[in-house]
Structures are given as structure tokens and as C-alpha cells.
């Protein structure tokens, strides 16, 4: 179903780090779940439209009117690492 190599690829896409022992376990668990899920591929769904929202929603667009922004100290208040200007992250180039 899903092997260790695919698990590692998906983990990388998800920015999840898996310990060596977790990879095999994840492969087993996901395979078991996917095995069950697979039954939907047997249904005849030709010509069936996909549904995103079941309830009809005619969501209106927002007017281009400014609303107050957060004070910078509030915007930065929850950051694990910040200076007075912004959110500090390891450089992507590093």
C-alpha cells in the first residue's frame, strides 16, 4: 500500500520528522487505513459532480474598505522569536 520510501517523502512534504522506528509503524498504520478507504474506488461515480460545500452558500465578496490592523507589539506578542521589526526565522539560505 504505502511503503517506507513514500512515508519519508510525505513526511518531508509535511515538514514532519519521523524517527527511524516511526517510519515503519506509520507505513503499517497508513496502509491499514488506506486499505479501508480504498473501497470508495470501487464505487461507480461516473458523471457524479464533486461536492465541496453541501449547503448552498452565496458568499458575498468583501468591500475594499480598510479595517484597523493590529498594533505591531500585539502582532509580534506571540512569536517565539522576534525583534522590534518582525518575526525572526533561520535564513532559508543558511
Amino acid at each position: 500500500m504505502i511503503d517506507a520510501k513514500q512515508v519519508l517523502h510525505v513526511a518531508r512534504l509535511s515538514r514532519l520528522e519521523l524517527e527511524p522506528g516511526e517510519v515503519e509503524q506509520m507505513a503499517t498504520e497508513l496502509s491499514s487505513i488506506l486499505g479501508h478507504i480504498e473501497q470508495i474506488s470501487k464505487l461507480d461515480l461516473d458523471g457524479v459532480e464533486p461536492t465541496m460545500h453541501v449547503v448552498p452558500i452565496d458568499g458575498g465578496l468583501r468591500d475594499d474598505e480598510p479595517e484597523p490592523s493590529l498594533p505591531i507589539e500585539v502582532a509580534l506578542s506571540q512569536a517565539p522569536k522576534a525583534n522590534a521589526e518582525g518575526f525572526i526565522v533561520p535564513s532559508p539560505q543558511a
Partner: peptide, 8 residues
């Protein structure tokens, strides 16, 4: 290592 500052 180098750091970057994000300005949103």
C-alpha cells in the same frame, strides 16, 4: 547561522 526577519 544567518537569520531573516519576516515582514508581513
Amino acid at each position: 547561522s544567518d537569520a531573516s526577519v519576516v515582514d508581513f
